[in-house]
Design a protein around this nucleic acid. Sequence first.
DNA 1: AGCAGAAAATGATCTGGATCAACTGTCATA
DNA 2: TATGACAGTTGATCCAGATCATTTTCTGCT
Lengths: 252, 252
Amino acid sequence: MKAMMQKKANQAHLTSQLKVSCDTCSLSELCLPRGLSKEDLNKLDHLIERPRSHDANTLIYQPGDKFTGFYAVRSGGVKTYLTKKTGEQQILGFHLPGEVFGLDGLENSKQRCYAAAMENTSYCILPHEELDSLCAVIPELRSQVYHIMGHEMNCDHAHLLLLGQQTAHERLATFLLSISSRFKKRGFSATSFVLPMSRHDIAGYLGIAVETVSRLFKSFQEQGIIKINRKQVDILDLDKLNEMVANCEEPK
Amino acid sequence: MKAMMQKKANQAHLTSQLKVSCDTCSLSELCLPRGLSKEDLNKLDHLIERPRSHDANTLIYQPGDKFTGFYAVRSGGVKTYLTKKTGEQQILGFHLPGEVFGLDGLENSKQRCYAAAMENTSYCILPHEELDSLCAVIPELRSQVYHIMGHEMNCDHAHLLLLGQQTAHERLATFLLSISSRFKKRGFSATSFVLPMSRHDIAGYLGIAVETVSRLFKSFQEQGIIKINRKQVDILDLDKLNEMVANCEEPK
DNA sequence: AGCAGAAAATGATCTGGATCAACTGTCATA
DNA sequence: TATGACAGTTGATCCAGATCATTTTCTGCT
């Protein structure tokens, strides 16, 4: 609810003419600028392309497109995915405001997967060449780039563990906890939020059938773990969810 | 067979005292030095730690260990993996000579997964701090680092597609083709090689049971696609394998 | 307000691959 | 040349989740 209103609000004042500086962006602490000095931030800010908008369910890029740079979500939500010939999508990641995507183009300057807006979405682009030049002179920026790439890889690794070793209900629990903690990081409620993606996309991310997603949501609700109505989720028993995924993790 | 002899040979002359330069390393074209000038290569060469050796089935690092830098396999083979509490391993990747691993430590300077030698293995370490400093002054090195990271991510993405959308036989076919093409890249036969990993590890990589791996190998053999004896694999019908996975890929 | 098409839920049935159990081959050590 | 331990194979059974079919609920559009 809160998240949705926030989205609408952002959407309203982000016209295509408006240059928005990292300086004033409420997401900069989650984004590439994190940890940069005022001065360095200013340099970075100059090369960022002003926010662009994409309507719901439109492609942002696809395999073969020229790699332009890193993409940072400002509002809305993005999914990246690969497909089988038969059309099934394997969702690689969901990208919420403050999160970065598009790194798949780094290998050979061509995008390798699809990126699509799940709802009306605005994002910034950090052109790769300029960013790279800046990296030469700002060590902190290099660190932040390494950090973001490392994070991306570790997310993928957790996703591999999920797809390779977890049962369907463990997968859904893991998914809910991931979304919850990411909303929390952005300052929203960790227990009450609106999912930006469809059941179909959740199924594609978790490697299970849509019907299974439906049934599992119902089952979680019957167990009193969540309350769910369409895309509105309320987590009633966070401990139970954590317990469900605890089995999947290292004792540490 | 050929691969195995090569390995033995390398092993023999790689004592812990011996400094081996990138310059003379037959794998440098697959490794970080690729694309560097003679001069830059020399700078890089100075910071690389001399090859270390690890016996079969020993840990190279584990979650929580301090991130030291990139690891480059010289001979042998390495697996990286995550585990469930219950002990099952999800293999994240197999790393053959000339390939890089250890990037999971980039996020926050701690390793996040396990890395273990699958056989007697030697590898170089490229200390992160020194490599990073060098990146500041050698743009080509930055490019190569991006390239390697991008490649790593795209491998993970292909792995996600495999785990999320492919059937067991598609997975095994994809796996065989991947190993085949990587041997080929190193100048070995693409159709006759010795697998460096156990059935258990193959199962852990593909997200299926060991028994299924066994049965599928048998089935492939009965169809005349491969000939397999323990770890010795001969691919008899490469086209058939390609056909099996073609269904999984984009028309492009 | 009413309709069409999409998204989601629900029910019934089926199956790929897991699991359990037993057996065989291989190599290392004494 | 036994012996034990582990890796791999094979067979029998079972079930989590897929698939197919139908219904219900939304959402956007005119």
